[in-house]
């Protein structure tokens, strides 16, 4: 039915070529900015214009990175932080969605909880981190709880909002067949919101990283946050910078993994955003 009027033509080929070219140009400029920035940083550092004690320099950071790779310590730190983050956003997302489902199923409960959720949402959760460490204890457990705390409330609020905003008439359609609340949930509310739930997961990855790094700053013996805060305390800026770069790469990889899952889902379900 669709696209039957679309044919290939010379004009179309030209259009495709042009589109490809502009995409390539943008990627080229992006790469140039990154490489140019690194080269400029290195050159300025070598010439002594900027203070390497304060900002380090790319070659030193790279050397340090190689050294950490060789003795394998970097992988230990990455493993700890990534594991904490994965636990953090998985628990935060799943628990948050479950709570949102409970709120969706009871209007009264949702109304009762509303002010508490609003206050909790407005509160910067990092302020709770020291208390959590004291209550739950240091180590992976405490850090994961901090990560969960940060993502949980926003997950509850946004998932709940998505759930109650599903078209009222579609709910009525299911009810006209005699659907129970559970059937409405599994046949309409959840499937119509899969895209939104994937988006929530994406946001939670970022939030969990914040929680993990904050947790590791407070008390930890390993992890990327530990590397960064340790480097800062002993004024080894190359260590700090390396930690940040590795952290950025880890976060990016995780984000892209979810992106791919999302693409896979849309390709499989044959629906569009």
């Amino acid at each position: 039915m669709r696209n039957k009027d679309i044919v290939s033509s010379d004009g179309f080929e030209k259009y495709l070529a042009q589109k490809k070219k502009s995409k390539r140009n943008i990627m080229l400029i992006q790469a140039l900015i990154l490489i140019g920035g690194i080269v400029l940083w290195e050159v300025l550092a070598q010439m002594g214009i900027i203070n390497t004690f304060l900002v380090s320099c790319p070659s030193k950071i790279f050397e340090l990175f190689i050294q950490y790779v060789k003795d394998g310590t970097i992988f230990t730190h990455i493993k700890v932080s990534v594991w904490e983050t994965v636990l953090g956003f998985s628990i935060g997302t799943i628990l948050g969605i479950l709570i949102a489902i409970i709120l969706w199923s009871s209007d009264t409960l949702a109304k009762i909880m509303d002010p508490y959720l609003v206050v909790l949402n407005a509160l910067p959760k990092t302020a709770l981190a020291p208390i959590i460490i004291v209550w739950v204890g240091p180590g992976v457990k405490g850090i994961v709880v901090i990560a969960v705390t940060i993502s949980l409330v926003t997950t509850v609020l946004s998932a709940y909002n998505y759930f109650i905003n599903v078209e009222e008439d579609k709910v009525k359609m299911l009810k006209s067949f005699g659907a129970t609340k559970l059937q409405i949930l599994t046949k309409l509310i959840l499937p119509s919101n899969i895209g939104n739930l994937i988006n929530i997961t994406k946001i939670n990855i970022g939030l969990s990283w914040v929680g993990v790094i904050v947790g590791e700053f407070i008390v930890s013996r390993a992890g990327l946050g530990y590397l960064i805060v340790y480097g800062g305390q002993v004024f080894r800026l190359d260590l700090v910078m390396m930690g940040v770069v590795v952290l950025a790469v880890c976060a990016l990889v995780m984000y892209q993994a979810v992106n791919m899952l999302e693409k896979l889902y849309y390709a499989k379900s044959n629906t569009h955003k």
Partner: peptide, 19 residues
């Protein structure tokens, strides 16, 4: 009110599915 993620047949089946 057809559900976009279900095929035509699955959309038609939903009433029976619920009951």
């Amino acid at each position: 009110h057809l559900l976009e993620w279900r095929t035509i047949k699955d959309n038609i089946m939903i009433g029976l599915e619920i009951q």
